[in-house]
Design a protein around this nucleic acid. Structure first.
Lengths: 250, 250
DNA sequence: CAGTGGTCTAGACCACATG
DNA sequence: ATGTGGTCTAGACCACTGT
């Protein structure tokens, strides 16, 4: 095995169908260990040489797998220290999942005031959004969020009860994704948002203290765990007189 | 020079200040060649071994530079064929810079109807947005765009006249970024958007055929060329009854 | 077939963090 | 001093695309 490629499942693909590089197989294995909670958020994982010898591949292959994972914010690499499983701490949420920013001033984590939390059966729209059967058990949560001391977001969050057993009876923190990961092993890895301008309805107008009909930014988010499960449906209505939503195109 | 690191400007940094890896220096050089138009959009660049021997570095280092550039959509790599300078064709614009999508149905390139184009002096707001001195020469362009046959976007675009000499006298295509690159050597590499919900003013209401006061999604875009120059300021007002803006968080 | 980018390995040295 | 990740090199082989 001096230079040259190992003969493994990855090489020679006479069928012509899928060809999976070795480093992707390694990546999948490592992601699985995080998804399974074998390596916990905030903790260091074994060093590159350790993983390489354990799996019988070269350090370069492990490196490539970890580099991809770092690019997806699954791990954090710190030169001289080690590679750590990423945490959903406030800083990360702010950077990765929270796009609403005061017009003048830096990003900050919004305060939350809980309005209601209730277990219920999914109606048709909810079931479709979460990929569940109509009538499946879900937990709905409503809250109002403030930025720079001003109420500006009304939020309705719905999650499958099956993924978060007993969540309705819990104390709910401001940062929900950290709770999902730490208490339920559901690590949110990506989300997709759809934005629209809408007129405030009676409910939103009341919660936000604006006149009905006021233009609001409606943000419709679907969040996925790192192993691909649909984890959350969230709709936010936001007053954008003094804040805006940022989107970087690159 | 058998294995081990070359002794170059990159190694040994006793000052402790900036340390620039070799592959970043290579990357900068290659980006410059694209920005200077030495390698034109759509054309293949020399192969990895050619570049490596020209610059006296290993192929792996060139590869790492090109991989970064591919990640920023500056080049496109095609296995078995070569590496090409990325073009601002419709498909890329749609993928990278156009986020408004019909509620049901796939992404499509919007039609444009030009309303007005005029050279003028930058007012204070425009100057601030484009990083120019107030009174600097700019070109303003207004148009209305349709998706799936329905008028849904009113757009005001302002560019510095200095970067685009004579643009006001030209025929203006639907895809402006391709024109910027091909005719003026301004390659747009990234953009930043700020989104708000606003009530339609008289002007937008007229252009879009809605009642004044209708909630509209206002998208405020600042676009930068790959060498970092502020290239365009664009404000779009969008009806979002049947379309929405997508934003992927990952 | 030859040429391109893509993967994999092995080994050396550098920068960084900690003891 | 030791161990971590980061850079750089050299070389082999694989997958893909053309001739």
């Amino acid at each position: 095995m001096s230079g040259g490629q190992r003969s493994s499942a990855a090489t020679t693909d006479p069928g012509g169908l899928g060809f999976r590089p070795l480093y992707r197989q390694v990546r999948e294995l490592l992601v699985q260990r995080i998804a399974d909670g074998l390596w916990a958020p905030g903790q260091p994982i074994p060093s590159e040489p350790e993983i390489a010898s354990e799996l019988g591949v070269s350090q370069g292959t492990v490196r490539k797998a970890l580099d991809e994972m770092a690019g997806e914010n699954l791990v954090v690499r710190r030169q001289g220290r080690g590679t750590y499983v990423a945490r959903h701490d406030d800083a990360r949420i702010l950077f990765q999942f929270f796009r609403i920013v005061p017009d003048s001033g830096a990003k900050e984590f919004p305060d939350s005031r809980l309005i209601e939390v209730a277990g219920e059966a999914a109606d048709e729209e909810t079931a479709a959004a979460l990929g569940l059967a109509p009538g499946a058990a879900v937990v709905r949560l409503e809250r109002v969020r403030s930025l720079a001391g001003e109420v500006c977001i009304a939020e309705r969050i719905v999650v499958p009860a099956a993924l978060f057993p007993g969540i309705a009876e819990r104390e709910l923190p401001n940062n929900l994704y950290e709770l999902y990961a730490a208490q339920f092993g559901v690590v949110v890895g990506r989300a997709s948002e759809k934005l629209r301008a809408v007129a405030a309805g009676a409910r939103e107008a009341e919660l936000l203290g604006v006149a009905a009909g006021t233009p609001l930014l409606r943000v419709d988010r679907t969040a996925f765990s790192i192993d691909g499960k649909l984890a959350e449906w969230r709709v936010s209505w936001c007053r954008t007189e003094r804040v805006h939503y940022v989107s970087d195109l690159r």
